[in-house]
């Protein structure tokens, strides 16, 4: 909050950073990340691919944390909203020949709409209800993706046109980087606005929020819909990056992956999950390739980390960073 107070003394660069909700250190990290895929030891295709996955997870983590961290509702059907966007875009492009660039944005509509309907249905109840119902809805959508073979090709996989003709991962890295930044900046700006204040109030104590004249249901629905819409948009990237879509992307384990990253990164920070995403994904990919005869070994780490962080350090990486910088300032 300090940098907001000092607004009058800031120069143009600081003002831009402030408008983008990025700290100087964050800016430095982002520039480094931007250059990383062209610096020699990191410019190999498989590493760039992992980084693309990492950035995709980071963007998802931001959208997930927007709901999970602020209004304290774990969207347990998150993967299905990603999948909904992916399949909408994939089907439109594969069957009707639409451009993937347009399809990606059309994917927002069904994801946002289903999110909105789920919200209307469940968000007037206690949070856990919304979590479980979103899960049911994700199961239903997942089942549809398997069974509606004439549309989705079922478990065989739907071939979608890719965004670009190239087989190189580098352009995709910059596309997902841009998408990640857009997701982060928009959601962070919402969080910083008055509406974000209402979200935090609702997440911390709903009754107190209601007494202060906040309509919790309305804000919760806005929040949930926005998060789901971004999930749908990111799903579009997934579809046109891999070029093949299987119902698996809606499976609960995909939600778990995002959830673990968000909790490790620190809830209600937006940037924490994003910061942890790339190192975490790369580490997990290393475990996976190193112990390839034990499939699922990396998931043991997912479970273990989640349990440990929840019990012993619920603040996650964002909290760690803040305590460390506080201590540093005091020195």
């Amino acid at each position: 909050m300090e940098h907001v107070l000092e607004k009058t003394t800031m120069n143009t660069f600081q003002k831009t950073l402030n408008a983008l909700c990025i700290t100087p250190l964050g800016f430095f990290a982002l520039v480094l990340l931007l250059l990383l895929p062209v610096i020699p030891p990191f410019n190999q295709e498989y590493l760039i691919r992992w980084m693309v996955v990492g950035l995709f997870m980071a963007a998802q983590a931001v959208a997930f944390d927007f709901t999970g961290g602020y209004i304290n509702i774990v969207n347990f059907g998150f993967a299905a909203f990603v999948g909904l966007g992916a399949y909408t875009s994939g089907i439109l492009c594969a069957k009707l020949g639409l451009s993937p660039w347009i399809g990606m944005f059309i994917g927002i509509i069904p994801a946002g709409l289903v999110g909105f309907l789920t919200g209307i249905l469940t968000l007037r109840l206690r949070g856990i209800f919304a979590a479980v119902m979103a899960w049911f809805i994700s199961l239903a959508i997942w089942g549809l993706a398997i069974k509606l073979v004439f549309l989705t090709e079922g478990p065989l996989g739907l071939n979608c046109p890719t965004l670009l003709e190239t087989s190189s991962n580098l352009p995709y890295f910059y596309i997902i980087f841009a998408m990640f930044i857009i997701t982060y900046v928009i959601l962070k700006r919402v969080v910083r606005s008055n509406m974000g204040l209402a979200f935090t109030a609702i997440g911390q104590n709903m009754d107190a929020a209601r007494t202060s004249g906040i309509n919790p249901v309305r804000y919760r629905i806005i929040n949930f819909t926005l998060s789901c819409a971004f999930a749908g948009w990111l799903g579009g990237f997934y579809a046109h990056y891999y070029g093949i879509l299987m119902p698996e992307i809606m499976h609960t384990t995909k939600t778990v992956e995002v959830l673990v990253i968000v909790y490790l990164g620190g809830r209600a920070s937006l940037w924490g999950g994003a910061a942890i995403a790339i190192p975490f994904v790369v580490a997990m990919e290393l475990v996976r390739s190193e112990f390839s005869n034990y499939p699922g070994l990396h998931f043991i780490f997912y479970g273990l980390f989640l349990i440990l962080i929840m019990i012993y350090y619920p603040g996650g990486f964002a909290h760690l960073y803040e305590t460390l910088t506080d201590r540093f300032r005091k020195l």
Binding site: A131, V256, F299, G303
Partner: peptide
């Protein structure tokens, strides 16, 4: 936030048990 937190921790436990068994 016990309800939501305990829910998430059972999720972690589930992932751990499933993949531990698989291991």
């Amino acid at each position: 936030q016990w309800v939501m937190n305990s829910f998430v921790i059972t999720l972690g436990l589930s992932v751990l048990i499933v993949n531990g068994t698989q291991f």
